[in-house]
């Protein structure tokens, strides 16, 4: 009996019998592809950001030093776009997390037609951003043909020209509508995973509906909320299609975020150097946000 135990070779020796370098060698193809995929564009962007490089003005070329960056930070559009980016991200996060949580709790209650309601609530997520933005622009928010306008008129009110009067708020509404299902989906699964005996224990302890929500449900959801915030932030920093098909960054620069600013520099003004400088700023910004988010969320996920 003892013999059979000692006979079996420890599994480790099989793995370590091969030299480490072979393992590394086998990793090489993926590493090379990843490097080409990520590092090359990054380095090229960095490189262009230090060059005079304008597609309609090939005469002025060559090393620009920090000129592209100087133009960028002295351009009022840049600071407005930075502000717009943060307002957009922050507002959409607040709207989706607050309404996502409330809807998740609501959809966890039994009511007739719940399954259909769930599917309906989640379906906006499957509509591509350009399409949903166009739907909002032409079918809902258009002052003449839109539903909102029709409703306003039926109450005898003047229809609102949303994209002219409240451009950023309109974009925020569209993007929130797109991302609410995502938040709802994640938060609903989290609500469903709450041990119902915990809520019953709270009921026995004298917690009403609101106290149960505040003391039991919300703490239980905190992890899921962190995940929603983290993932949404990453995607919301780069919102572009919705702006492109509705306001094109306007009126003026009212809805220009960083992503749209870079696009405008590169493909409307053909200033590759300036666009690259903006791109580098965007990367730095994204990394700063990611750093703080990951750190705070990693701490929360430990619990």
């Amino acid at each position: 009996m003892d013999a059979s135990v000692t006979e079996a070779p420890p599994v480790e020796t099989v793995a370590t019998a091969m030299p480490r370098s072979v393992g590394r060698l086998l990793l090489l193809p993926s590493v090379v592809v990843l490097l080409a995929w990520m590092i090359v564009p990054l380095v090229m962007t960095l490189w262009f950001s230090f060059q005079y490089y304008n597609l309609i003005n090939p005469e002025t070329a060559g090393f620009a030093g920090l000129d592209n960056y100087r133009y960028l930070v002295t351009d009022p559009d840049f600071w407005v776009s930075l502000e717009n980016t943060l307002i957009l991200v922050g507002s959409v996060l607040v709207v989706t997390v607050v309404f996502g949580t409330l809807l998740a709790v609501l959809f966890n209650q039994p009511f007739p037609g719940r399954n259909i309601a769930r599917v309906l609530a989640i379906s906006p997520f499957f509509v591509m951003p350009t399409v949903s933005a166009l739907i909002w622009k032409n079918l809902l928010m258009h002052p003449i043909y839109g539903v909102f306008g029709a409703v306003a008129r039926s109450f005898g009110r003047q229809p609102v020209d949303w994209f002219a009067d409240y451009p950023l708020a309109s974009i925020i509404a569209i993007v929130s509508w797109e991302w609410l299902p995502f938040a709802l989906l994640i938060l609903l699964t989290a609500v469903q995973s709450l041990d119902h005996e915990q809520r019953e224990a709270a009921r026995m302890d004298g917690a009403g509906v609101i106290a149960q929500f505040v003391f039991i449900t919300l703490p239980h959801l905190s992890r899921a909320i962190s995940v929603v915030v983290m993932i949404e932030t990453i995607f919301l920093l780069t919102v572009f299609a919705e702006i492109f098909v509705t306001t094109s960054g306007g009126p003026g620069n009212a809805t220009t975020n960083l992503a749209f600013l870079i696009y405008a520099r590169a493909l409307l003004q053909y200033d590759i150097g300036g666009a690259s400088a903006g791109g580098i700023v965007a990367i730095v910004l994204a990394n700063i946000v990611a750093f703080f988010l990951v750190r705070s969320i990693a701490r929360r996920l430990e619990v």
């Binding site: 019953e200 224990a201 026995m204 302890d205 703490p219 905190s222």
Partner: peptide, 30 residues
């Protein structure tokens, strides 16, 4: 009469402790 107003306390099979509260907070919640 609601569960909190019957003057009863219940111990659940799964214990149903509140995971984000300390033992002291759990016991003092009511």
């Amino acid at each position: 009469v609601g569960p909190a107003d019957r003057g009863l306390a219940m111990v659940f099979q799964t214990y149903a402790l509140y995971p984000h509260m300390t033992v002291r907070q759990n016991m003092g919640f009511a």
